[in-house]
Design a protein around this nucleic acid. Sequence first.
DNA 1: ACCTCGATATGACACAGTGTCATCTCTATA
DNA 2: TATAGAGATGACACTGTGTCATATCGAGGT
Lengths: 202, 202
Amino acid sequence: MPKITFFNLPDDKRKTLICAAKKEFARVPLYQASISNIIKDAKIPRGSFYQYFEDKEDAFFFLLNNHVASYKSHFVDTLKNNNGDIFEAMIEFYQSIISEEKENLQFLRNLFLNMTHRIENVFARSFGETDLNEDFKKISKLINHENLNVKDENELFHMMQIISSVTFHNFVKKFAGELSFEEALNNYKTEIHLLKKGFLSR
Amino acid sequence: MPKITFFNLPDDKRKTLICAAKKEFARVPLYQASISNIIKDAKIPRGSFYQYFEDKEDAFFFLLNNHVASYKSHFVDTLKNNNGDIFEAMIEFYQSIISEEKENLQFLRNLFLNMTHRIENVFARSFGETDLNEDFKKISKLINHENLNVKDENELFHMMQIISSVTFHNFVKKFAGELSFEEALNNYKTEIHLLKKGFLSR
DNA sequence: ACCTCGATATGACACAGTGTCATCTCTATA
DNA sequence: TATAGAGATGACACTGTGTCATATCGAGGT
């Protein structure tokens, strides 16, 4: 977490800093990003950066958490709008993410092409160290269980794990392959369809 | 690829170097690994390293390719032994990977917890820039298509994509969560089972 | 034995980025 | 106006990278 001084900063200075950081993390992935670039862009001296953040990662994960928080609430909305149909909701969500504006897309690209477990974890659980089950239970309640071929909570949990693995991987393919919007969406739909019908004929 | 001089090296010197590199990449992930450590351990001067490799990544991907090549042939064997049952083969394969010896496990751990797209790609296709379909077709021929609920090559391709997404993610969970062998295996079996039966009741 | 030339080895060096710290500045309050 | 605490600043030490001029080696020719 950023230090208190960061939050005490006047709004415009804080915004400038956030923009500079976002710009750098949209330019290159975390491990290639440099504090030097950020402070040069934000026009603050080196020492100040360390007044506000622990280090590069601190700044990065602050930004990431903001992004993820907003995606999360967006996803919950989407799920509600689709009456708990998790599959339709995922497709709509996937679609909306790959339609983001340029700088965000670039940021996401660097994210997904360099998805360390630490980053993935931010998606899986809120940064506030809340229990991972918290989020799962919240989502689970919103899902329409009718027609779902799962026999208990455990199977539902693993179903969600599978869906998120597949979704992540589709993002990676989209960003790596420079797939068009349509290609990416069709691939994702095909895979969701396969998940629904299962791999074995009965 | 390493430079010619690397392959011209006397066997023992080359082995020492490979061991030192492996040790470093088992200690920390690629982005944290340092050439300085490798040359200190291998007792070669700094300039020599650059005589053999382009840079850190060059050495890393050389090692990675070796690993992956051996895993690949191991997987093909496993698939054959299971008479083309892709699901049983995956489970047996998964099991064998998480049973590797310590240094390899540590190397894999750093790999999966920092799975950049560039690394993932090495798994997906051979480094030799061969067409990605090459490998897929080879595996596809070995798979027993009886009872498989796929209607064409395209669906089969996406089925394989899903299986590999899920498998990758299970490796990540295993290495991140410090799950026991049994826990990890059970989780994986559950997910494969779910994939087989599908998410929708019919 | 000696020379030569291409291949290889070596470590000093310039450079880039990190994180720290002593010191300076600002502002609110007694 | 004095003072304390919060914040700002940039010089500095340190670590690691990649390069390059120079040294060394070894096989083949004379």
